[in-house]
Simulated assay, not measured.
Amino acid sequence: MTTYNTNLAAEFYVLSMLHRLGADAALTLGNKKAVDIIVASENRTITTVEVKGLAKAYDWPADNIHNFLDSQHFYVLVCFEGKITDPLFPPSVWIIPSEKLSPFIKKYETRIVISRAKIKADGQQFLHKWSLITG
């Protein structure tokens, strides 16, 4: 399983969940993009979603994250917990508004990540919190 396939699996999982919950959501196309999914609400508000997917329980790469202030932008962190090839095992998903993401960012000398340890310790209020996007 390649990183690209993991990201696609995560994006389609998130898109599927949003549709299951009644959202009007569309996947954006392209390989290097900041917005993966666009969600239109009934009152014509647009919400944007960036999906970060992992096959195993690691930190999420975050070198390309620059949006921490948009109240209509969300980061959806998907982890298949090492069982990406098992279709009966659901992934763990954290839905985090962009303005709440910065406490989970960890900067190293050569890279920036979203810390899985910090998310697990201090981000349980975002675990499977789809209603933050769907209302």
Results as ranks from 00 to 15, higher is better:
19 H>M: 08
126 F>D: 02
120 K>H: 08
58 Y>P: 01
56 K>A: 15
120 K>Y: 05
105 I>P: 01
69 L>S: 14
108 Y>L: 14
35 V>K: 10
10 A>S: 14
122 D>M: 12
51 V>C: 07
66 H>P: 00
100 K>W: 05
89 F>C: 09
4 Y>Q: 14
58 Y>G: 08
34 A>K: 10
24 D>K: 12
99 E>L: 11
102 S>W: 04
94 W>L: 06
14 V>Q: 05
122 D>I: 10
42 E>C: 07
131 S>Y: 11
128 H>Y: 10
132 L>I: 04
71 S>Q: 12
33 K>A: 07
46 I>M: 12
70 D>S: 15
22 G>R: 06
6 T>H: 03
62 A>S: 08
87 P>S: 10
61 P>V: 01
82 G>R: 07
70 D>I: 02
74 F>T: 03
123 G>H: 02
71 S>P: 10
29 L>N: 00
15 L>S: 07
88 L>D: 11
125 Q>R: 15
102 S>E: 12
134 T>E: 06
39 V>F: 00
55 A>V: 01
129 K>T: 11
19 H>P: 00
97 P>G: 08
43 N>H: 15
98 S>L: 03
117 A>T: 11
89 F>E: 03
30 G>S: 10
25 A>Q: 08
72 Q>F: 09
54 L>P: 01
63 D>V: 06
105 I>Y: 01
96 I>S: 09
25 A>N: 10
12 F>T: 10
122 D>R: 13
60 W>S: 01
81 E>L: 10
112 I>K: 14
116 R>F: 03
95 I>V: 15
49 V>N: 08
64 N>M: 07
79 C>G: 09
71 S>D: 13
112 I>N: 00
15 L>T: 04
3 T>K: 13
76 V>R: 11
70 D>F: 04
8 L>H: 11
130 W>H: 05
93 V>K: 06
60 W>N: 00
47 T>A: 13
97 P>C: 09
110 T>C: 00
50 E>W: 03
59 D>I: 02
47 T>Y: 14
11 E>I: 08
129 K>R: 15
82 G>Y: 03
45 T>P: 02
25 A>G: 09
5 N>G: 11
126 F>E: 03
122 D>G: 08
69 L>N: 14
24 D>S: 13
84 I>P: 03
36 D>S: 03
83 K>R: 11
88 L>M: 14
57 A>I: 03
57 A>G: 12
129 K>F: 12
75 Y>D: 03
86 D>A: 09
43 N>V: 13
93 V>S: 06
58 Y>S: 11
17 M>E: 12
12 F>N: 15
83 K>N: 10
102 S>V: 05
1 M>P: 04
70 D>V: 01
48 T>P: 02
90 P>E: 02
88 L>E: 13
44 R>L: 15
102 S>N: 07
7 N>C: 06
36 D>Q: 06
123 G>F: 00
85 T>P: 01
18 L>C: 10
90 P>S: 02
24 D>F: 08
30 G>R: 11
101 L>I: 06
87 P>L: 09
70 D>L: 06
102 S>I: 07
